[in-house]
Design a protein around this nucleic acid. Structure first.
Length: 850
DNA sequence: AAGACGTGCGCG
DNA sequence: AAAGCGCGCACGTCTT
């Protein structure tokens, strides 16, 4: 039986010497041999000459009684999913052939004792593929864990002398256990269990021969060069190759500042690899020689004929742009293998190494662990001997190329070339935004820092004077920590006896405690208000102010006085960008006081900050997807759908707005319209049920059943589309946005609806961002993307009209055919700093004159 | 000292 | 996991 948490890595691995001994002595030293089992040491069963080798974890109770694998509950889930025509062509075995005590996950010792006999059986029976169920066989065969990230993939493996394919599958016992514990996702996971098996059976007979790469494949013919002339000549060879892997090793993560160095550079394909130092401390170049090498490298980048494959291209491009020149960012044909990986399978996972890492992907495609071959600490490269760094660098570069070619083939097979093209195109665009950077006004930073430091001090002092806190300190041995939710909950629940902090989980019936803002606001009083004030002040200071202060230890302002936020193009599973270091996408804007942190971002002399928002972009995308008559018409005619529903619902249930007398109150109805937009129209479009929407609105659902029905009669096309998307998902296991970019399950019902909408909106905005960037005019390179917003912090003040007209032109003209069913709108605002932004106007595609 | 995890909160 | 969805980051606790 697999553990409760299927991705848990197997711990306490025995040491290498001990493993050899366990392999030699096998059952004689196996801890499981001590257990009184009916069928210990269970032999494999099934076909002698199998197509597929079904490998489980260990026998369970029923298996032990019958002496056969997969005959219990797990077998009942698995066996019906073996197609009839394959029933006589499978062989069954487990990683451990004796039932562990109480079905515990087998210990590493037991696994190693059993390993030789399993290997022998696989070598003898020579299956085309192994279907491995659960984390244990996955780790057994590959050393990797994290079955939920590995499922749905396949990798070549070498077991003893036999090479074949390995399919990581969820373990049926895990699905059964989830079901018993009443987890809602049971059917969802089961669906993928069945889908994975179906996919595997469909292709298993026609698989090409599996190939596992060897350490020789990785390091053969990789030369480390130290002579500038030989480097120049070798780069001429590299520039002629149709496909070449490229990789840098650097001493820092970011390229800014005087200490940032590219240590070594490597280019490689399967036939040859060359790696050489640039600024590695051991490089013995004269200054002239060093410049020669840099010159040769620039020439290579400009003249390379083939595709340059890089894993995490944004990293190499940022260094390239800063150290060799911005023009090289679009030179030749850069390709990103991590973006490819995300197009094929966007699951990010939280386990390390994650599915976007080179280590994971090389294991998946080539059956070898690249990182384990070289015992190099990536954080200490500057003090690692240069020839070792070069070798390591060359091996990585080679696999960038291998991975690129392998993934390109998969992408073609899936018909995802267009989605991939759009994904690749984003990389140079966002890197240029990153490099361009955003100026920070230190005097504003310093002022705000002082203000909030003082406030935090005062509020903290007041908190410790409160009687509740004094009582807390008397009753507990540890002092009250105001920012610790558990401590706050203790005060609310045990001292103040307030029930507002308790909720019963709808799904599990468990009592849960919370000290979040809503709860504290509901309770009110000195304690709650002070805690809230402290939280908000600390958040503002440490998230939005301190990191901008030059001198702070986590300062994100670089040596050039700018912040250079990194945009990730493939982290958000819907295809949005995400930003970090700092996250420029979540700077306060709504809260009247909190938004003052925006003043820290200000335009330089003669420039303005100009922001361009796509108006209601997701709403328009729903129109593009559904072509719903009512919705499309409303968009063309600028009809106020939210206002319309605000009126309808206010008439149905006037109590919500304070009574009938407010039906004609402009202010009240305007506020109510906002509520309707956020708590009715949008949630319903995104898949919310009547109960949820009514709950948000605080109107009893029974008062809204009629409106709910009318709503969906009205927007029948939207309803139809929601049902279609669900059907598509049930069949394929993924949904797609309007460019074909996919998002795979498991997904919740609402994610199924939301993902295509959010994803398509992101494609529209990113396409505009790319087109602006591709103008190749630094002025039109946006510095900031906030999902539906492109912001320029260097808009030329004197030519602002001409400048913004050009940008609106570009943004409004969405080139995708599927986008043309509805009009597009762009809202513009500008100002001297990011706080005081003045709205200029809203521009519609169908009213826009050039 | 570094990482994982939970809670909370900022944005679209 | 579900909660309309998607993120990053700070703080605090606990583990290695």
């Amino acid at each position: 039986m697999p553990g409760l948490f299927p991705d848990l890595p197997i711990q306490h691995t025995p040491k290498r010497n001990d493993i050899a001994l366990l392999h030699k002595l096998q059952c004689r030293v196996c801890p499981l041999a001590q257990i009184n089992n009916l069928h210990p040491d269970m032999p494999a069963s099934g076909a002698e000459d199998p197509l597929v080798y079904i490998l489980g974890e260990a026998p369970g109770k029923d298996e032990d009684i019958e002496g056969k694998q997969f005959v219990g509950e797990s077998g009942q889930l698995l066996r019906p999913n073996i197609p009839r025509e394959f029933r006589n062509r499978v062989r069954f075995n487990n990683v451990v052939r004796t039932r562990p005590w109480k079905n515990e996950t087998p210990s590493p010792t037991a696994i190693e004792c059993c390993r030789p006999s399993i290997i022998k059986d696989i070598e003898r029976s020579k299956p085309r593929a192994i279907f491995g169920f659960g984390n244990v066989p996955l780790t057994w065969v590959s050393g990797f864990s994290g079955i939920t990230m590995w499922r749905g993939r396949r990798m070549p493996v070498r077991v003893g002398t036999h090479t074949c394919w390995y399919y990581p599958m969820l373990h049926p016992a895990f699905l059964l256990r989830q079901g018993r514990e009443g987890k809602a996702s049971i059917s969802e996971l089961q669906k993928f269990f069945i889908l994975d098996l179906k996919k595997a059976w469909a292709e298993v007979e026609d698989l090409p021969a599996a190939q596992v790469h060897t350490p020789d494949d990785v390091f053969q013919d990789i030369e480390c060069l130290y002579d500038p002339v030989r480097i120049e000549n070798s780069l001429r060879w590299a520039a002629e190759q149709p496909d070449i892997g490229v990789d840098y090793e650097t001493n820092m993560l970011r390229p800014y500042g005087p200490k940032a160095r590219i240590l070594t550079i490597a280019v490689a394909n399967e036939e040859r690899g060359i790696a050489f130092p640039l600024d590695h401390p051991e490089a013995e170049y004269t200054p002239r020689q060093r410049d020669m090498v840099a010159g040769s490298w620039k020439r290579f980048l400009l003249t390379a004929k083939g595709r340059k494959w890089v894993h995490s291209l944004a990293f190499e491009l940022e260094w390239t742009g800063v150290h060799f020149g911005r023009e090289l960012i679009r030179a030749g044909r850069w390709r990103d293998t991590s973006n490819q990986a995300a197009i094929i399978d966007e699951r990010r996972g939280k386990q390390k190494p994650g599915p976007f890492s080179l280590e994971f992907l090389v294991q998946q495609y080539f059956g070898i662990n690249l990182k384990k071959l070289t015992n190099v600490d990536r954080k200490k490269l500057a003090s690692t001997p240069v020839e070792i760094v070069c070798l390591y660098n060359g091996g990585d570069a080679r696999y960038h190329k291998h991975l690129g070619i392998a993934q390109a083939k998969v992408i073609k097979g899936l018909g995802l070339q267009e989605a991939n093209r759009l994904a690749q195109r984003r990389v140079p665009t966002v890197v240029l935004s990153t490099i361009k950077g955003i100026p920070v006004r230190q005097e504003v930073v310093a002022r705000l820092r002082k203000k909030y430091a003082k406030r935090i001090e005062i509020v903290t002092r007041k908190i410790f004077k409160l009687p509740q806190v004094k009582q807390f300190n008397a009753e507990n041995k540890d002092r009250f920590v105001p920012l610790e939710p558990k401590n706050v909950i203790y005060v609310l629940n045990d001292i103040m006896k307030r029930k507002e902090c308790r909720t019963v989980n709808k799904w599990t019936d468990k009592v849960e405690y919370s000290s979040e803002e809503d709860v504290l606001k509901k309770i009110g009083g000195k304690f709650c208000n002070l805690i809230l004030r402290l939280r908000k002040s600390v958040k503002r200071k440490s998230t939005y102010i301190d990191p901008l202060f030059i001198g702070d230890e986590d300062c994100v302002v670089h040596a050039d006085g700018l912040i250079h936020p990194i945009y990730n193009t493939y982290f958000a599973e819907t295809g949005r960008l995400s930003a970090e270091d700092p996250n420029i996408q979540n700077v306060p804007k709504r809260d009247e006081e909190a938004k003052e942190v925006r003043e820290q971002i200000a335009a330089l002399l003669d420039y303005l900050i100009a922001a361009f928002d796509y108006g209601q972009i997701e709403y328009r995308v729903i129109g593009m997807f559904t072509k719903d008559k009512t919705l499309v018409k409303a968009l063309w005619e600028n009809f106020d759908v939210h206002g319309d529903w605000a009126r309808r619902i206010a008439h149905r249930y006037p109590a919500r707005i304070g009574g009938k007398k407010f039906l004609n109150d402009v202010k009240v109805m305007k506020d109510f319209r906002t509520d309707i937009k956020n708590q009715w129209t949008f949630p319903l479009f995104f898949g919310a049920k009547l109960e949820s929407a009514a709950g948000y609105l605080k109107i009893p659902p029974e008062n809204l059943t009629k409106e709910y029905d009318i709503f969906w009669q009205h927007f029948a096309g939207v309803k139809q589309w929601q049902e279609d998307v669900h059907r598509f998902y049930d069949k394929h296991g993924y949904v797609e946005c309007l460019t074909g970019r996919r998002r795979h399950g498991p997904l919740s019902p609402n994610q199924i609806i939301n993902s295509p909408v959010q994803g398509s909106a992101a494609e529209i905005v990113l396409d505009a961002m790319c087109r602006l960037s591709e103008l190749d005019d630094w002025e039109y390179q946006p510095e900031i993307n906030i999902h539906d917003d492109l912001t320029f912090v260097r808009a030329p003040e004197k030519r602002i009209d001409e400048f913004s007209e050009k940008i609106i032109d570009m943004m409004i003209d969405v080139p995708f055919e599927w986008a043309k069913v509805v009009p597009i709108s762009v809202e513009m605002s500008y100002g001297k700093n990011w706080l005081n932004m003045e709205e200029v106007g809203t521009f519609f595609s169908h009213q826009w004159r050039k």
